[in-house]
Design a protein around this nucleic acid. Structure first.
Lengths: 138, 138
DNA sequence: TATTGTTATACTCTATAACTATA
DNA sequence: TATAGTTATAGAGTATAACAATA
């Protein structure tokens, strides 16, 4: 079906990436989705849970479950928001950053395979086109 | 993180598509992944379960669970392979094809949104780049 | 009234390993 | 020995709705 070529390739690309990411992170006891949380926090720390939900394209329950696990392991901290009593500010800890660096290292083969058959210029194009898809789906 | 732009956009694009697909199919009691099974079978009927696993980028357990459900609803049939006693040939039923047509119809808004901000020529490029990613990840 | 987050619940998908029956 | 499929089990992610606290 012509109309489902992009959806099916999008699916295959994501699922393969997700599966290989989980496989490479298994020895750390971290899932691909937990890694996404850490990635977002490593880039912009001190955001509230709801913001994390948006950026991770996730939902409140899932993010909460992940944060509880990550907090138990001392990788993140959830602190009360100083001005909004409802919100919780999430921060990655120093230990979280250290482990995150190891995870990024362990994922090098996956990153390399992902764009192995795509030249630099095309990678930019791919990213831009995906960004437009995301924008349209919001 | 520069290296995670494509992965994160790939993730957001897939998850949004998947979520919206599930939402639009909910009233039929069919999941996005079950739809993928039907799509594959509607295109090339009479393949064995293992082949379905490969094409759906899935695993034996997941595919089996889906097929059992779809078979209970009379949408597919699993018959013994005439020459290989281990294998099962999966076929979509006439009722399966009818419902599949309705599902495709119900998903029109999702398909449209997906490429809403991408001209025809760019859609071809996107598909080709995704195909290369899939190829590299195998 | 609307929003942030939690709790409870149920279901789907995923991964592993052990098993059978066939090849 | 290897392969197709099943069974059992456990865990992770998802969706919904009801709720408390706060804005």
């Amino acid at each position: 079906m012509e109309a489902y070529k992009i959806p099916m390739n999008l699916r295959a690309a994501y699922l393969s990436m997700h599966r290989q990411t989980n496989a490479h992170l298994a020895r750390f006891g971290v899932t691909a989705d937990q890694f996404v949380c850490l990635l977002i926090l490593a880039e912009e720390d001190g955001i509230i849970q709801q913001e994390l939900v948006k950026r991770a394209t996730s939902d409140p329950n899932t993010i909460r479950a992940m944060l509880v696990l990550l907090e138990k392991r001392g990788l993140v901290v959830r602190a009360p928001h100083p001005r909004d009593g409802r919100a919780r500010i999430v921060t990655i800890t120093e230990e979280g950053r250290q482990i995150f660096a190891e995870l990024v290292s362990a994922l090098e083969p996956v990153r390399n395979r992902l764009t192995a058959q795509i030249p630099e210029a095309d990678a930019k194009t791919l990213n831009e086109l995906l960004r437009r898809v995301v924008e349209a789906m919001e």
